[in-house]
Design a protein around this nucleic acid. Structure first.
Lengths: 131, 131, 131, 131
DNA sequence: GTGGTCTAGACCACT
DNA sequence: GTGGTCTAGACCACC
């Protein structure tokens, strides 16, 4: 399947992060499989109408974290899926966004039950998307 | 009860946000109750070894959002709890940290069930703190 | 249309509030429309001969209250109009300036009918400005 | 009639201003008439549980503006009602709270009709109070 | 004493 | 280039 993506420039999330997240989702959903080639930095930058540096940064992050791998002169590919993080490391890295979520909910006066509902909703959407 | 707090300067989260979060948690947990006085801007700044402006900013944010209220020349106090934002606005503002959480979980290979468990755990800790 | 503004430093109202008010008026009058870009923090600071932090503060306030929105590295833009505060909170926040107005009128010996006329006049000027 | 008054310490309005406003209202409503003696600074300060300096400041403001007059060694009295401000001066002095009201309404998204209603409501309350 | 405002100048992340 | 954060130090109003 062709790899499609959109980023929203009128959003608070940094674009390089949005790209990273879209790639992760595509890998998770199976739209991108091990060994698949991604669009070149310049091609994707053109597609998304963003600065090539921004795409390069996203690819670099994903490469560092073992999701992608660059092959000299050939482009960037989906890496072989391998366990990168230990359980402790996973917990450590989920900590910050988890705190941010709970704190923002407190700040806004969102009730625990409502927050659980919102989390379920997002997760459900991903699960059915990835089948 | 005495009000204690720590911030980490070498962290990703801005200091004024850390202060904001700690105060929110204390209010939610019941350590700070309606009408309680907070440390003065200068006192807390000295405690935390940060610039008074940084503390003032956190207090200003909390005041604007209805958590605290200032009384002329007397200090800053915990305000009466009240709904400030419309439901749509609350959902809008929780959206970004929620996305960040789900994306990071995806990236790390955390299963939906595990994520729900982690959220429950944090919320539970707060709830039992507040009795 | 070009965006013009003046602030008076020798006035009772804080500068960041004057900036906030001028932007609100421009948005309400239609001089600034959804999606329009505002002068950069530094540019406006130079125009007004004030410190950039002061402009940044005004922009931050307007962003928090849903009038503006920042886009990473691109500047600050007029946000889509939306209700942010609950009705009770709006009434709460208008209460103080309303009291100030009525008390000052009382003090000056302005008749209720005259005061109503003055309020109408200001509101009318804004309405015709916004078409 | 005895002169009664209350100030709210948990409020944003400076206390000396609250005192000034209460005295103005009492004069306007006829509860305090020309020549009536006001409580001494110390007595009123004790009544209101505020600092005597704060009461002194309010009395000074009211004396400067022609509402009260001090008689050496005898206390402070309601002055003979006389026109103090020209029409132009009245308009000038009402300008700032009027702007503050309209700007805050804009900022909060309050509609002109709603604002007119709120002004009417406050004025109506005063009129029936003063008979 | 308290908080609120403003200035000056630095550093960082993002594009 | 953009805005966001932090520091340092000043001045003001209020109590």
């Amino acid at each position: 399947m062709a790899f499609r993506m959109r980023v929203s420039t009128g959003s608070a999330a940094p674009i390089h992060r949005q790209i990273r997240d879209r790639v992760c989702e595509a890998v998770h959903a199976g739209d991108l499989q091990e060994g698949d080639r991604l669009p070149s930095v310049r091609a994707l930058a053109e597609m998304l109408v963003v600065n090539p540096n921004t795409v390069a940064r996203a690819y670099a992050d994903l490469t560092r974290d073992g999701v992608l791998e660059g092959r000299q002169g050939k482009g960037v590919f989906v890496a072989r899926r391998r366990p990168v993080y230990t359980k402790a490391e996973r917990l450590r890295r989920i900590g910050e966004p988890l705190d941010a979520l709970v704190n923002e909910a407190l700040f806004l006066g969102i009730e625990p039950a409502e927050l659980r509902g919102l989390v379920d909703e997002r997760l459900g959407r991903l699960e059915e998307g990835g089948r």
